[in-house]
Protein backbone atom coordinates (compact mmCIF):
# COMPACT_ATOMS: atom_id res chain seq x y z
CA UNK A 1 0.00 0.00 0.00
CA UNK A 2 1.29 3.45 -0.90
CA UNK A 3 0.84 6.19 1.67
CA UNK A 4 1.06 9.87 0.79
CA UNK A 5 4.11 11.73 2.19
CA UNK A 6 1.79 13.74 4.44
CA UNK A 7 0.31 10.56 5.99
CA UNK A 8 3.81 9.13 6.52
CA UNK A 9 4.86 12.38 8.19
CA UNK A 10 1.85 12.22 10.49
CA UNK A 11 2.69 8.59 11.19
CA UNK A 12 6.17 9.61 12.33
CA UNK A 13 4.71 12.22 14.62
CA UNK A 14 2.28 9.66 16.05
CA UNK A 15 5.13 7.28 16.89
CA UNK A 16 6.92 10.10 18.71
CA UNK A 17 3.82 11.03 20.71
CA UNK A 18 3.03 7.39 21.58
CA UNK A 19 6.62 6.84 22.72
CA UNK A 20 6.38 9.91 24.93
CA UNK A 21 3.09 8.66 26.39
CA UNK A 22 4.50 5.20 26.96
CA UNK A 23 7.73 6.40 28.61
CA UNK A 24 5.80 8.45 31.12
CA UNK A 25 2.94 6.05 31.80
CA UNK A 26 5.34 3.16 32.33
CA UNK A 27 7.41 5.29 34.71
CA UNK A 28 10.60 4.94 32.67
CA UNK A 29 11.11 8.69 32.78
CA UNK A 30 9.79 10.78 35.56
CA UNK A 31 9.73 14.55 35.87
CA UNK A 32 7.36 16.21 38.26
CA UNK A 33 6.16 18.67 35.62
CA UNK A 34 6.41 16.67 32.39
CA UNK A 35 2.86 15.55 31.60
CA UNK A 36 2.00 12.77 29.14
CA UNK A 37 0.55 13.81 25.75
CA UNK A 38 -2.90 12.56 26.76
CA UNK A 39 -3.03 15.07 29.66
CA UNK A 40 -1.80 17.84 27.32
CA UNK A 41 -4.50 16.91 24.78
CA UNK A 42 -7.19 17.27 27.44
CA UNK A 43 -5.76 20.64 28.50
CA UNK A 44 -5.60 21.71 24.85
CA UNK A 45 -9.26 20.83 24.44
CA UNK A 46 -10.12 22.96 27.43
CA UNK A 47 -7.90 25.75 26.16
CA UNK A 48 -9.66 26.08 22.83
CA UNK A 49 -12.94 26.41 24.74
CA UNK A 50 -11.53 29.29 26.78
CA UNK A 51 -12.53 32.71 25.36
CA UNK A 52 -9.59 34.61 26.90
CA UNK A 53 -7.17 32.46 24.92
CA UNK A 54 -8.51 33.94 21.69
CA UNK A 55 -7.75 37.45 22.87
CA UNK A 56 -4.22 36.33 23.75
CA UNK A 57 -3.80 34.62 20.41
CA UNK A 58 -5.06 37.63 18.49
CA UNK A 59 -2.64 39.82 20.41
CA UNK A 60 0.33 37.66 19.43
CA UNK A 61 -0.82 37.28 15.82
CA UNK A 62 -1.35 41.02 15.59
CA UNK A 63 2.10 41.78 16.99
CA UNK A 64 3.86 39.23 14.76
CA UNK A 65 1.97 40.00 11.54
CA UNK A 66 1.91 43.76 12.13
CA UNK A 67 5.66 43.86 12.67
CA UNK A 68 6.20 41.58 9.71
CA UNK A 69 4.22 43.88 7.43
CA UNK A 70 6.20 46.90 8.67
CA UNK A 71 9.46 44.98 8.20
CA UNK A 72 8.45 43.88 4.71
CA UNK A 73 7.60 47.40 3.58
CA UNK A 74 10.85 48.86 4.92
CA UNK A 75 12.93 45.87 3.84
CA UNK A 76 11.68 45.71 0.27
CA UNK A 77 11.93 49.46 -0.39
CA UNK A 78 15.34 49.79 1.27
CA UNK A 79 16.63 46.55 -0.22
CA UNK A 80 15.58 47.56 -3.73
CA UNK A 81 17.17 51.00 -3.29
CA UNK A 82 20.39 49.39 -2.04
CA UNK A 83 20.39 46.93 -4.93
CA UNK A 84 19.99 49.73 -7.46
CA UNK A 85 22.33 52.37 -6.04
CA UNK A 86 26.00 51.68 -5.56
CA UNK A 87 26.61 54.93 -3.69
CA UNK A 88 23.79 54.17 -1.27
CA UNK A 89 25.41 50.79 -0.61
CA UNK A 90 28.78 52.43 -0.04
CA UNK A 91 27.37 54.75 2.60
CA UNK A 92 25.03 52.39 4.44
CA UNK A 93 26.33 48.82 4.23
CA UNK A 94 28.74 49.34 7.13
CA UNK A 95 25.92 50.47 9.40
CA UNK A 96 23.75 47.60 8.26
CA UNK A 97 26.47 45.03 8.83
CA UNK A 98 26.96 46.40 12.35
CA UNK A 99 23.24 46.38 13.19
CA UNK A 100 22.31 43.10 11.54
CA UNK A 101 24.12 40.62 13.85
CA UNK A 102 22.83 42.42 16.96
CA UNK A 103 20.88 39.85 19.01
CA UNK A 104 17.22 40.93 18.81
CA UNK A 105 16.74 40.26 22.54
CA UNK A 106 19.13 43.13 23.27
CA UNK A 107 16.50 45.48 21.86
CA UNK A 108 13.96 44.56 24.56
CA UNK A 109 15.36 46.81 27.35
CA UNK A 110 15.75 49.62 24.83
CA UNK A 111 12.14 49.26 23.71
CA UNK A 112 10.85 49.01 27.28
CA UNK A 113 12.56 52.26 28.19
CA UNK A 114 11.24 53.96 25.07
CA UNK A 115 7.70 52.60 24.90
CA UNK A 116 6.99 50.96 28.28
CA UNK A 117 4.81 47.84 28.50
CA UNK A 118 2.92 48.30 25.26
CA UNK A 119 2.28 46.88 21.84
CA UNK A 120 4.75 49.46 20.51
CA UNK A 121 7.52 47.69 22.40
CA UNK A 122 6.60 44.44 20.69
CA UNK A 123 6.43 46.01 17.25
CA UNK A 124 9.82 47.67 17.74
CA UNK A 125 11.58 44.54 18.99
CA UNK A 126 10.09 42.32 16.28
CA UNK A 127 10.13 44.61 13.26
CA UNK A 128 13.77 45.71 13.35
CA UNK A 129 15.33 42.23 13.28
CA UNK A 130 12.64 41.08 10.82
CA UNK A 131 13.76 43.74 8.34
CA UNK A 132 17.16 42.14 7.71
CA UNK A 133 16.25 38.90 5.92
CA UNK A 134 13.87 40.82 3.63
CA UNK A 135 16.34 43.64 3.03
CA UNK A 136 19.23 41.29 2.26
CA UNK A 137 17.02 39.06 0.10
CA UNK A 138 15.68 41.98 -1.93
CA UNK A 139 19.10 43.60 -2.35
CA UNK A 140 20.68 40.29 -3.34
CA UNK A 141 17.87 39.56 -5.76
CA UNK A 142 18.23 42.91 -7.51
CA UNK A 143 22.04 42.70 -7.55
CA UNK A 144 22.14 39.19 -8.91
CA UNK A 145 19.83 39.90 -11.83
CA UNK A 146 22.16 38.86 -14.59
CA UNK A 147 23.86 41.54 -16.65
CA UNK A 148 22.62 39.55 -19.62
CA UNK A 149 19.00 40.31 -18.70
CA UNK A 150 19.85 44.00 -18.37
CA UNK A 151 21.41 43.87 -21.84
CA UNK A 152 18.36 42.10 -23.22
CA UNK A 153 16.24 44.90 -21.76
CA UNK A 154 18.51 47.54 -23.32
CA UNK A 155 18.57 45.89 -26.71
CA UNK A 156 14.77 45.56 -26.70
CA UNK A 157 14.63 49.28 -25.89
CA UNK A 158 12.54 48.80 -22.74
CA UNK A 159 11.74 51.94 -20.78
CA UNK A 160 13.15 52.45 -17.29
CA UNK A 161 9.83 51.61 -15.64
CA UNK A 162 9.55 48.48 -17.76
CA UNK A 163 13.04 47.39 -16.72
CA UNK A 164 12.01 47.83 -13.08
CA UNK A 165 8.63 46.12 -13.26
CA UNK A 166 9.23 43.51 -15.94
CA UNK A 167 12.86 42.56 -15.30
CA UNK A 168 14.26 43.59 -11.92
CA UNK A 169 11.25 43.02 -9.66
CA UNK A 170 10.25 39.62 -11.08
CA UNK A 171 13.88 38.51 -11.18
CA UNK A 172 14.28 39.49 -7.52
CA UNK A 173 10.88 38.16 -6.42
CA UNK A 174 11.98 34.62 -5.43
CA UNK A 175 14.71 35.87 -3.12
CA UNK A 176 12.40 38.58 -1.75
CA UNK A 177 9.83 35.91 -0.90
CA UNK A 178 12.47 33.70 0.69
CA UNK A 179 13.43 36.70 2.85
CA UNK A 180 9.76 37.24 3.71
CA UNK A 181 9.39 33.63 4.80
CA UNK A 182 12.46 33.76 7.03
CA UNK A 183 11.18 37.01 8.48
CA UNK A 184 7.77 35.60 9.20
CA UNK A 185 9.04 32.74 11.32
CA UNK A 186 11.43 35.16 13.02
CA UNK A 187 8.49 37.50 13.75
CA UNK A 188 6.55 34.80 15.55
CA UNK A 189 9.58 33.70 17.58
CA UNK A 190 10.33 37.27 18.58
CA UNK A 191 6.69 38.00 19.43
CA UNK A 192 6.74 35.09 21.89
CA UNK A 193 10.12 36.14 23.34
CA UNK A 194 9.18 39.77 23.81
CA UNK A 195 5.90 38.74 25.45
CA UNK A 196 7.81 36.45 27.81
CA UNK A 197 10.39 38.93 28.99
CA UNK A 198 9.09 42.30 27.81
CA UNK A 199 5.44 43.17 27.44
CA UNK A 200 3.37 40.71 29.58
CA UNK A 201 0.59 39.93 27.10
CA UNK A 202 -0.37 37.40 24.47
CA UNK A 203 0.62 33.74 24.10
CA UNK A 204 4.25 34.26 25.18
CA UNK A 205 3.19 35.64 28.53
CA UNK A 206 0.55 32.90 28.85
CA UNK A 207 3.25 30.22 28.67
CA UNK A 208 5.27 31.94 31.42
CA UNK A 209 2.14 32.53 33.50
CA UNK A 210 1.05 28.87 33.39
CA UNK A 211 4.59 27.73 34.15
CA UNK A 212 4.74 29.97 37.21
CA UNK A 213 1.31 28.73 38.26
CA UNK A 214 2.79 25.18 38.14
CA UNK A 215 0.26 24.26 35.52
CA UNK A 216 2.34 22.26 33.00
CA UNK A 217 -0.62 20.76 31.14
CA UNK A 218 -1.90 24.17 30.16
CA UNK A 219 1.62 25.45 29.55
CA UNK A 220 2.20 22.68 27.01
CA UNK A 221 -1.20 23.32 25.47
CA UNK A 222 -0.13 26.93 24.84
CA UNK A 223 3.20 25.77 23.40
CA UNK A 224 1.37 23.48 20.98
CA UNK A 225 -0.89 26.35 20.00
CA UNK A 226 2.19 28.47 19.24
CA UNK A 227 3.65 25.64 17.19
CA UNK A 228 0.45 25.35 15.18
CA UNK A 229 0.51 29.09 14.56
CA UNK A 230 4.05 28.75 13.17
CA UNK A 231 2.95 26.01 10.79
CA UNK A 232 -0.01 28.13 9.71
CA UNK A 233 2.16 31.22 9.11
CA UNK A 234 4.59 29.28 6.96
CA UNK A 235 1.81 27.59 5.04
CA UNK A 236 0.22 30.97 4.37
CA UNK A 237 3.40 32.25 2.71
CA UNK A 238 3.95 29.08 0.72
CA UNK A 239 0.45 29.41 -0.71
CA UNK A 240 0.98 33.13 -1.34
CA UNK A 241 4.24 32.39 -3.21
CA UNK A 242 2.50 29.83 -5.38
CA UNK A 243 -0.12 32.37 -6.34
CA UNK A 244 2.35 35.22 -6.86
CA UNK A 245 4.96 33.22 -8.81
CA UNK A 246 3.18 30.39 -10.58
CA UNK A 247 6.05 29.68 -12.98
CA UNK A 248 8.89 30.09 -10.53
CA UNK A 249 7.39 27.65 -8.11
CA UNK A 250 7.39 24.74 -10.52
CA UNK A 251 10.85 25.44 -11.86
CA UNK A 252 13.50 22.90 -10.90
CA UNK A 253 16.39 24.44 -8.91
CA UNK A 254 14.05 27.19 -7.85
CA UNK A 255 14.90 29.11 -4.70
CA UNK A 256 11.33 28.61 -3.59
CA UNK A 257 11.59 24.89 -3.07
CA UNK A 258 8.36 22.98 -3.08
Amino acid sequence: MKLSPLLRGIGGLLVFVLAWEFLIQSGMIRFQYLPPPSAIAIAFNELIATPTMYAEMMHTIGAALGSWVIAAMIGIVLGAALGLSKSLRTYTMTSIEVLRPLPPVALIPVALLMFGFSLKTELFVIAIPAIWPILVGTMGGVLSTSTRLREVARSLKLHRSEILFKILIPAAAPSVLVGCRLSMSLSLVLAIVVEMIGNPEGLGYAVVREAQALNPNLMFAYIILIGLLGVLFNHFLVVASKILLPGEFRRPNSLMGR
Partner: peptide, 25 residues
Protein backbone atom coordinates in the same frame (compact mmCIF):
# COMPACT_ATOMS: atom_id res chain seq x y z
CA UNK B 1 18.50 45.81 -34.77
CA UNK B 2 17.85 42.68 -32.71
CA UNK B 3 20.44 40.68 -30.81
CA UNK B 4 20.52 36.97 -30.11
CA UNK B 5 22.90 36.01 -27.32
CA UNK B 6 24.73 32.74 -26.93
CA UNK B 7 23.53 32.02 -23.38
CA UNK B 8 19.84 31.57 -24.02
CA UNK B 9 18.99 30.47 -20.49
CA UNK B 10 20.31 33.77 -19.07
CA UNK B 11 18.72 35.79 -21.83
CA UNK B 12 15.20 34.44 -21.35
CA UNK B 13 12.88 35.51 -18.55
CA UNK B 14 12.44 32.25 -16.68
CA UNK B 15 9.24 33.46 -15.00
CA UNK B 16 7.50 34.24 -18.28
CA UNK B 17 5.97 31.75 -20.67
CA UNK B 18 7.40 31.35 -24.16
CA UNK B 19 4.70 33.60 -25.59
CA UNK B 20 5.27 36.36 -23.04
CA UNK B 21 9.04 36.16 -23.56
CA UNK B 22 8.52 36.74 -27.25
CA UNK B 23 6.14 39.60 -26.46
CA UNK B 24 8.65 41.38 -24.20
CA UNK B 25 9.99 43.78 -26.81
Amino acid sequence: VAIVFQDYSNALLQWRTVGRNVALG
